[in-house]
Structure formats: C-alpha cells, structure tokens
Design a protein around this nucleic acid. Sequence first.
DNA 1: ATCAAGATTACCT
DNA 2: GGTAATCTTGATA
Length: 214
Amino acid sequence: MPVIMKPVVKLDLNLKLEKEFYARDLLQVAKDLLGKILVKKNGKEITAGKIVEVEAYDGSTDEAAHSYRGPTPRNKIMFEVGGYLYVYFTYGNHFCCNVVTGKKGKGTAVLIRAVEPVSGQDKMIINRFGGKKISGKDLYNLTSGPGKVCKAFGINTSDSGTDLTGNKIFLLNGTVIKKSSIGVSRRIGITKSTELPWRFFIKDSPFISRKAVK
DNA sequence: ATCAAGATTACCT
DNA sequence: GGTAATCTTGATA
C-alpha cells in the first residue's frame, strides 16, 4: 500500500515542453524549470515529480561546471543545443541529472537537485529503499537531493544524452511559480566559483534538499 | 600507469 | 554538526 497520502495526479502528456524551451538562456531556463514536472516512462510504468530545486552551470565562466575545460567523453552532450539530459556518476555511488540548455556549443546545463513526488511514488520507494515501508517524514527524504532523484527515478549514465523531446524522459508544463516564491542562493557541494548565486528553489517547499546554505 | 578530486549521501555523536 | 564510503573521470607522465 502506498504510504504517501498525496493523490496521484493525472498527467497530461500534451503539456510536454518543446525544444524552444530548452534552447534559451541558462539562467532563464533554470528559473523556469521550477514547477515543471519531470517524467520518466518505462513502458506502462511512470515516475513523475515536480521540480522544486535546481542549480545552473555555465562552462564559459564557471569553474565549477564540468564543461569549464571543454568537451570530454563524459560531458560532450553539454555542448549540444538545449533539450538533452546530461547524467554523470560521482562519489562512487551517485548519479546526478542535468537539463542541457542554450545554443549548440554553449556548455550550459541545469542540475535537478530536488523534486516533489507526483506519480509513481511506490516505484520510487522501491528504487530508493527496496520497497520497505517508510514513515511520513521519509516522504520528504525520497527525492530531496540530486542523487536521490536519480535513484528514485532509476536514472543512470545510460540515460545521458536522452532527447527530452522524446518519449522516455521529458518535462511537462506544471505549476507557474511566482517570482516572489523563488529562493536564490549559492550552490551546494562545490569548491570553485562558490560566489555565484545560481541555486534556485521554491521557498516554501518541504521537498528541497536544504533550507539554508552557508 | 597512476593519482587526486568530486554538482553526495547515510550514519554517527 | 561532522565524516567515511566508494569508484569514475580527467589530468599528468
């Protein structure tokens, strides 16, 4: 039985975001991603979550970006036109997924740091905790970090390069987030270019990875 | 061929 | 609040 009391939302697949959305400026896309619905389809199975926290990375000026030193086998998809998924593996355990943005050659992408589960919560619990019963407060621990999101959705490096206008992993138009409810801070977990205020999150969401950043 | 660092998480006090 | 775990990637030789 689902532990989560949230009603399963009926997803309208006609609201899929198109290429033009992604091909715009990095910071614009980053803020606009808040409230959008990340969807992964696996046959009949669907996992979906509302994006509540993101970070922007820009290889041209930002030393923390994987693209800062130019294309490599791992990051080359970041240099494509916006609308692809970039997934990398880190710390020996975790995958992180990013939305590539901008024009071809830019090397810009947005890290999806946290989502609010919308559909397929049971599958997320299986992926994250082996299907063990979870308590109510663990709901907020299901997808509240970039590694957690990938684990819950079953996203790994084999998904890197996925075309987000396709039918496997994509985004749907969701809630429009008022400018006044968007929080801004420095980015988490980096040691270079730490001064850039490029983390964006929905202020009152209990599903973000952290409240405050040092 | 070798090595250090890492866009994190879970678990401990 | 602090830190060990874990292994791929990219840089250097």
